[in-house]
Design a protein around this nucleic acid. Structure first.
Lengths: 252, 252
DNA sequence: CGCGATTTGTGCACACCTTCACAAGCGCCT
DNA sequence: AGGCGCTTGTGAAGGTGTGCACAAATCGCG
């Protein structure tokens, strides 16, 4: 989280999720960030043959506190049965609906260095309803290259293609120096969500959401904890082999 | 964040940072997660020739509120001068010390698929004091391959090498199915920090820190906001082109 | 030497998030 | 039909994080 919060969705017609669209619960950011994790756990459970799952079971699979899980799910409007648990299939549907994963979203990827290549070939995207529909790079030697069935185009085409393909989400995997310019083009082309892997702060209009992932930052946070632990081992005993614990997941 | 918090460092001899080790402020997690961002901004400013910087200037470069920045920095013990600002070089040193970046940390990387390859070649690690010293994979066809001057070894060597090289941080970029087994080996070898790119929850002893990065989750969070925005555009006007805003950075 | 401009450091109030603990609800078994 | 055990949903309390607004401190200039 940085400059500003995600504009607390103002009161927005409650109503049932009868037809198809409209109606939107005002979910806390923290909850949203956990929904994908629940979804993954549910898919695993479903493939393992479970029909229903208790909050205890699901929370264990997702690595969270069970009370937190229940409160999260209660925000999307009770889909559990007391004494029984949650219907796995139903809950998957509900979460996918809330996350908007039922509609396949077009994604474009800009910057095809090491990381860009990896992202282009990443399975996790397609399996969650995302489809990378275009690749761009500024380097002429990369343009024309074929990756995962897509041809890399020159960045000058970005604006036009983004509009044509109705792209809503852009992924920036360029060097820091180029990121802001790319973001500007994306915004002009109507992209309203950006996933930024470049180590820099992007400046965008308020209606555009930016999420930043910086791999080096993650390591630095771990480094801090290493440092802290090292400065502690002098005093107490070493290895305090306790049970399972301390996961720290990424996301606001 | 998931199962458990990072064990609130208990009261731990304050004292000055005179000699070299010992003495550790009890920093809030949220602050720690922002320090690397400040550090990056400071390096940029330093290269641009700035000797000092105000909290206003630095906070803008890091994309945060200036009061938050001051409070964060005050936690590491006043290194600013009222009426002037912060000494860039001094502050860099101080943050690097707190994050433990002054001591080069050995990192190993397990799993050399698309993502693993990208990580092995990622510049951002070396430039922040991390050195990847070993690569491992279970696939015999990958063993022996040379990447960035390192030879990929078979995962069976992981335990031995991790101990020999005194590796403190392990990066897991394997498929989900293999991740837990790899984590177990890492833990046995004395690794106390793990960066997990596999989409699954790891179970580790309480003294081991795990940070998880899941690229698909980031996209799903963006998808939610797309969904929300789409369900809103029906009512108010479109493009509410406000100034710079809404960054959402990753990290607890 | 004193004054004003500037900027840090922080007390305080508020909002968000987490966790416990328990009442309410549901199904099953007798 | 009634009771019992199980599980959800939630009120309330405590903790963490955020941001305003201002006092305290420092520098430069007349």
């Amino acid at each position: 989280m940085s400059q500003q919060r995600h504009g607390s969705t103002p009161g927005n017609a409650p109503g049932e999720r009868t037809g198809a669209v409209t109606a939107f619960p005002d979910l806390p950011e923290a909850t949203i960030a956990r929904l994908p994790e629940y979804l993954r756990a549910l898919h695993n459970l479903g493939e393992a043959g479970a029909d229903t799952v208790s909050s205890e079971g699901l929370s264990a699979a997702a690595g969270v506190n069970s009370a937190k899980l229940r409160k999260d799910l209660s925000h999307l409007g009770s889909y559990g049965t007391r004494g029984v648990g949650y219907d796995v299939t139903l809950l998957i549907e509900q979460i996918e609906y809330v996350l908007g994963l039922d509609q396949r979203r077009a994604v474009c990827l800009v910057g095809l260095g090491n990381l860009g290549h990896a992202l282009a070939g990443y399975d996790g995207f397609a399996s969650r309803g995302f489809k990378i529909v275009a690749l761009f790079d500024a380097d002429a030697s990369k343009v024309g290259e074929e990756i995962q069935g897509l041809t890399v185009r020159h960045i000058e085409e970005l604006g036009r293609v983004a509009v044509e393909e109705n792209i809503a989400i852009g992924v920036i995997a360029t060097p820091a120096g180029a990121a802001q310019a790319v973001a500007d083009v994306l915004v002009d082309a109507g992209v309203t969500s950006i996933l930024n892997f470049a180590p820099c702060v992007l400046s965008v209009p308020a209606n555009v959401d930016v999420r930043k992932v910086d791999l080096a930052i993650e390591l630095q946070i771990l480094s801090f904890h290493e440092h802290r632990k090292a400065s502690l081992t002098a005093l107490p005993g070493g290895r305090s082999a306790t049970a399972a614990g301390n996961q720290e997941a990424v996301g606001s």
